[in-house]
Amino acid sequence: MEFITMIINGLSIGGTYAMIALGYTMVYGIAKMLNFAHGDIIMVGGYTIVLFFPISPILGIIASVIFCVTVGIVVEKTAYKPLRGASPLAVLITAIGVSKLLQSAAQIFIGSESKGVTVNLGEIRMGEIKINVLTLITIACSAAVMVALTLFVKYTKTGRAMVAVSEDRGAAQLMGINVNFIIMITFIIGSALAAVAGVFLVFKIQDVGTTFGAMPGIKAFAAAVIGGIGSIPGAMVGGLVLGFIEAVCGMVPALSPYTDAIEFAILIIVLLVKPTGFLGKKRREKV
């Protein structure tokens, strides 16, 4: 019985990480940058749902997605786009700056006290197992998002253009693909996924502060690296791996205080054994 509970928890936590990791990995693959402000988009989504929740939870989710996407677009246009072609270090520092900016903005406009919501959708019983309905919704939603994204990338013109740009930006331009447009689409998708993940995290943790996105952000980044940064299925696999580690640690009292340490230790081991991550490809040497 414990085993099934563990699987369900693992899928739920892993699905949330996977949604965030997808944002990291797609932006890395396509824009060739590490967007360290990605975690703070989760925080933006978290605050939005908290503010809108008393009016209507559904409206709150929609508002979260819209607001996160807007912030994502503004950040891309104002902070990252001018640095296209600049050194990776400049872009990285800028991303860290954007992260701090978003946290400070939240502090100024919303305050430094954490805000919370209470969400209880009840439990369903299956024999001896009790499953939280919210957990099931999280799993269903993240699964739907991942399937939709996979289909989008594989079968739409824009999705294939994303693969093309991530593989060879110059050759993609020769096809008439507008790289800036594709990067913008990537930020939109990444921010929308972060918003959804943020909503589920708020429902679970029920408490949002200005650094709310930092820990899930860094773990999802670890997930993206474990899976192979730049690879979409890799982000999904990496997210689930971390989710299951967390679920197992959560159920073993001796391990649970060390959950974070174990997760990052596994990241280090994966990097030592397979530096490209599970599904990451070795970049071809360009002549």
């Binding site: 294939r160 693969v163 593989e167 110059g170 050759a171 993609a172 096809m175 490809k281 360009k286 002549v287």
Partner: peptide
């Protein structure tokens, strides 16, 4: 358009998808 030096096909896409990319515009 250009056939670039070193071909630079999209190795992760299928042959069909590469041709579709050619017709992108």
């Amino acid at each position: 358009t250009q056939v670039p030096e070193g071909r630079r096909i999209f190795s992760e896409l299928t042959v069909y998808e590469n041709l579709v990319m050619g017709a992108y515009t």
